[in-house]
Structures are given as structure tokens and as C-alpha cells.
Nucleic acid binder design. Structure first.
Length: 488
RNA sequence: GGUCACAUAGCCAAGCGGUUAGGCACCGGUCUGCAAAACCGGCUACAGCGGUUCGAAUCCGCUUGUGACCUCCA
């Protein structure tokens, strides 16, 4: 099998993936800040890296997948009078900050379950790793790349940039950053506006606070990921993922901190998923055009024509490459919904396919095509295109226009299911799974009555049976001999 | 303003120098009492202008348009 190739943001090129310590692979992905309900944007990285996690595991790697929960309220802006999101929300709802954290973490988990996103191996919280973060800040201070100012600790970007390239991930030059930095309000504490906090002294009204050698306060914006990835994956690890919007400054800061604290580069492959857009514009909390996952699932949103099944959302996301923007629309979602239904139907049909003495379709080539797509930087849309090629073949076999041996069919069943369920992480449509044993028998009886009516040319009756069944959600499709039915 | 992306048929979306991407929609046909499903066929596009090449959606340049990042964001 061909090797797995991943696009590394750091080198801006596709590289063959080689783990540092095979068969083990370490993956760190930036998770959500839990101060609000999960929205469509959260689904993209979760699903993208879920597929990576699944595929690496499928390939036989022992993957340790770490996805954090940010539960320390980061300030809204760089100025001292910025607002802590979690504390703000807590004040609004008149509850403890940790209640906010708990509520939205639970909600996030629930939505991820619905999308069939596997749980990460470790899901560390920033608030649970304050000592590690303090320790890391101390290391950086000791190394001389940070300074204390009014109880806060800042990273000295200028000094770092003298020997390293601050901005190498996002392709930025420090001088340019200086030129484009905006208002310097409340930044008197810093030597340079682009310096970032490792530790922030808490203002009196700031509820979330911890003791530190410098002041009662809280860790800086970016430190948690460096501290937790180092703790669980080591000083150097394989893959770090996240949304493209985190590239700068978040990941840039991580690179700098880890380099100084650990004395070496921490991440080997940086992967970034692109954004979901709505009418061509980024879907973002601050833009107020976000759609919550719950709203998608219930259809309760002015922009939604109907409710969409979580698997439709998952399939929709997988039909675009993770590095491309994906434009949301009802039309696109409904196209995915129908396509997914066709794919699922064919999976149900596959095991019962009539078999013959020879196989007239090229299964090996198909399989190779599928793996090539996955190996080419997780090109799920291409994989799905190949899956649909096989759907056509399955239908042709069903129609007797192609044939397959029993051995090939049984192998195909396994392979097809692996692609769809194990790797892409789709779930069988729950609604079509019959939960009653009586229903099929009843249906058999009704349909035989209808068959009789048809035989007697009593089409008024046969149509009435079909129409009435249709009204209660059962569709009937006539075949050459008899008829089949399905719910939905 | 700086940096960087992207512009593909009605819609979504692959494509990484030379063969039909794929899904949805639409239009014919087969099948059927009718329908649905399924199958076969049709629609076959690459923002514009130049350049490189035997050959470009694919490489280079310019133009136009859109977006992202430069502040928290997935």
C-alpha cells in the first residue's frame, strides 16, 4: 500500500508521514473554549481529525489523541480591561464559572457523540494543568526569554525572533507585525505590542484565579496547549492540528514557547482545517452568523429549510477536502442527505447480492483507488467519489448486468463497511433500522393483499394501499416479482 | 494598509501538465397498469488577458473579483 502523505503547514507541502516512534503516533488538536453552545464550526476540526485518528488507527498505529478543553477564561482582547469569556458568561447566568464550563463541555460532548466523533485518548483541561503551565513559564523566564511586568509574565518575542523565526508557520515577518499592530491601549506592561502573556495578573473582579510565583492570576492565552502537549505527548511529537484561524497567533506562540522551554521544536507535522462559510463568509461567533449544531439537528433556525441528521452533517463535511473552505447552504446539505441515503442503501443491499461464477468488476483496482485517496492527505471527497463508483457496480450486479463471486462479495462487504463505518465514521441510518419484528410481517401481509388487488386489476385499491402507507411514512416500490418497502 | 489563499458546469465539490472526477438538480430512454427505485444516455465547466509547452483548469505574469489572517474565534 502507498504511504500516507499529509500536508504540513510548516513546510507548505505534502510530506510522507513518518512517526517519530512507530508504531506510536502522538496527535494534539486544539479543542473548544467552552463558553457557548457548539456550532457548525466546531464540527469541522472534530470530524477532520476524527478521520485522521480513525485512519491512523486503521493503519495499525497506536495513536494517542489529545484534544483539550479550554476552560480558563481567556481575555477578549490584549488590553488589560478585556473580558474573560467564561467569567462573563457566568455573570450573565449568575452561576459559577465552573458551572459554565461543565454545562458547555457536556453539551459539546453530546454533540460530538451525535456526530459519531470518537472520544480522544486524553481530554485535558487547562484549569487542571496550572502547575504545569507555571512550570513552563518559569523555564522560559529562566532561559531569559520572558520578563515580569507588574505581576504578569510576557514572552519576549523580539529576543526569540533574533535566533528563531517568529511567524514561520503563518508566513509572517516580525517587522510587518510591528507595522500593522493596532492601538496600543493598555499595553504599557509589554516591551513590544506583539509580546504575549505567559501569566496574567488577575484584576480584583477576575474570578478565575490561581496563585503563582508572580501574582494571583491565570495562565496566558497560548500556554495551555504547549504545557499539555508536552506533558502527554513529549517534547517532540508527531501531529498538531487545529483550525486555520488558530495558526496566528495561537500556534505561532506555541511554537515559540515550546522551543524555548524544551530547547527544541515540538511539532513535526502541523495540520490545519479550513473554515465553513455561509454565503461565502466565514461562519464565526463574532460575526453572528453561526448555526448551532442543535439547530441543524432540529431545523430551528431562520436559515434552515429543514432539520438535518447528524450523519448528513458529517457526510457533508467529508464531501469537501479539509483544507478547502466549505460553503453551507440548504441545497448542498440536501444533496448530501440524498447522496448519503443512496450510499447507505447500497450497503444494506450488498450482502444479499446475487453471486455468480465469476467477478466482472475490478475490485482490487477500486480498493487501491480508495486507499490512494485517503493516503493523499486524507482526500475524503475522492474516497467518497470512489464509493459511489462502487454503488453503481453494486446496482449493476443487482440488475444482473455485472456479476460477482460469493467470495469476492463477502470480501467486498467487509472492505466497503470499513471505509464507510470504520474510517469515515458514518453510522447506519438509525431510522431505517426496524426495531419491531412484527412490522415486517404486517408489511408482508399488506403487500400480498396489494399484489392480489393488482392481479385483479383493482388499481384503485392497490394505489390506495400505497398512498395510505406513504402517508404514515412507508414507501412502497414495486419490483418485477412483488414489492419492497422502506421507512422514510 | 500588510501577509496569504481562492475563483471549476444550475448548486456543492475533486483536480497538482495529456484519460468521464463524484454527489444533488435537470432532460431523454429501459422497466412499470401508473408511480417510485434502479439502470443506460444527455447536459461536459474551469474569472479575463498574455506567456511557457507538442499539449494547461493544472506552471509563470498581469488584471478583475471574493475571502482569510493581522484581536477571541474551529
Amino acid at each position: 500500500m502507498a504511504e500516507l502523505i499529509l500536508y504540513n503547514t510548516l513546510t507548505r507541502s505534502k510530506e510522507i508521514f513518518e512517526p517519530l516512534h512507530p508504531p506510536r503516533v502522538g496527535v494534539y488538536v486544539c479543542g473548544p473554549t467552552v463558553y457557548g453552545d457548539p456550532h457548525l464550526g466546531h464540527a469541522r476540526p472534530a470530524i477532520t481529525f476524527d478521520v485522521l485518528f480513525r485512519y491512523l488507527s486503521y493503519l495499525g498505529y497506536q495513536v494517542r489523541y489529545v484534544r483539550n478543553i479550554t476552560d480558563v477564561g481567556h481575555l477578549e482582547n490584549d488590553a488589560d480591561e478585556g473580558h474573560d469569556k467564561i467569567a462573563t458568561r457566568a455573570r450573565l447566568e449568575q452561576i459559577e464559572p465552573m458551572e459554565v464550563v461543565q454545562r458547555y463541555s457536556d453539551h459539546y460532548h453530546q454533540s460530538m457523540d451525535q456526530l459519531n466523533v470518537l472520544k480522544p485518548s486524553i481530554e485535558p483541561r487547562a484549569s487542571g494543568h496550572i502547575p504545569e503551565q507555571i512550570e513552563m513559564a518559569e523555564k522560559i523566564l529562566k532561559a531569559g526569554y520572558a520578563y515580569i511586568s507588574n505581576g504578569s509574565v510576557y514572552f519576549d518575542v523580539e529576543k526569540y525572533d533574533a535566533e528563531n523565526h517568529y511567524g514561520k508557520l503563518s508566513g509572517r515577518i516580525l517587522d510587518d507585525l510591528l507595522a500593522t499592530t493596532r492601538d496600543l491601549d493598555g499595553q504599557q506592561e509589554k516591551r513590544n505590542p506583539f509580546d504575549f502573556a505567559l501569566w496574567k495578573k488577575a484584576l480584583p473582579e477576575h474570578i478565575m484565579r490561581w496563585n503563582s510565583p508572580w501574582s494571583p492570576g491565570f495562565p496566558g492565552w497560548h500556554l495551555e496547549c504547549s504545557a499539555m502537549s508536552t506533558k502527554y505527548l513529549g517534547e517532540t511529537f508527531d501531529i498538531h492540528g487545529g483550525g486555520m484561524d488558530l495558526m496566528f497567533p495561537h500556534h505561532e506562540c506555541e511554537i515559540a514557547q515550546s522551543k524555548i522551554a524544551n530547547g527544541k521544536d515540538s511539532v513535526r507535522y502541523w495540520m490545519h482545517n479550513n473554515m465553513i462559510t455561509i454565503n461565502g463568509q466565514k461562519m464565526g461567533k463574532s460575526l453572528g452568523n453561526g448555526i448551532l449544531l442543535d439547530q441543524l439537528f432540529s431545523g430551528d433556525h431562520p436559515l434552515l429549510e429543514k432539520a438535518y441528521n447528524p450523519m448528513t452533517i458529517r457526510f457533508f463535511i467529508l464531501q469537501a477536502h479539509y483544507r478547502s473552505t466549505l460553503d453551507f447552504s440548504n441545497e448542498a446539505l440536501q444533496a448530501s442527505e440524498k447522496g448519503l441515503a443512496r450510499l447507505m442503501k447500497s450497503i444494506v443491499m450488498l450482502p444479499g447480492l446475487p453471486t455468480g461464477n465469476n467477478t466482472t468488476i475490478n475490485i482490487e483496482e477500486w480498493k487501491t483507488n480508495c486507499f490512494n485517496a485517503l493516503n493523499d492527505d486524507l482526500n475524503t471527497p475522492i474516497l467518497i467519489a470512489h464509493l459511489f463508483d462502487m454503488v453503481r457496480m453494486i446496482n449493476l450486479i443487482s440488475d444482473g448486468k455485472e456479476s460477482i463471486t460469493q467470495m469476492d462479495r463477502d470480501a467486498l462487504v467487509l472492505q466497503f463497511r470499513q471505509f464507510v463505518f470504520d474510517i469515515l465514521g458514518l453510522l447506519e441510518d438509525q431510522s431505517s433500522a426496524g426495531d419491531s419484528e412484527i412490522l415486517p410481517k404486517v408489511m408482508e401481509m399488506i403487500l400480498s393483499l396489494r399484489q392480489e388487488a393488482k392481479k385483479n386489476k383493482d388499481f384503485a385499491l392497490s394505489d390506495r394501499i400505497r398512498d395510505e402507507l406513504g402517508k404514515i411514512g412507508i414507501s412502497v416500490k414495486d419490483k418485477k416479482d412483488g414489492a419492497e418497502w422502506e421507512i422514510g
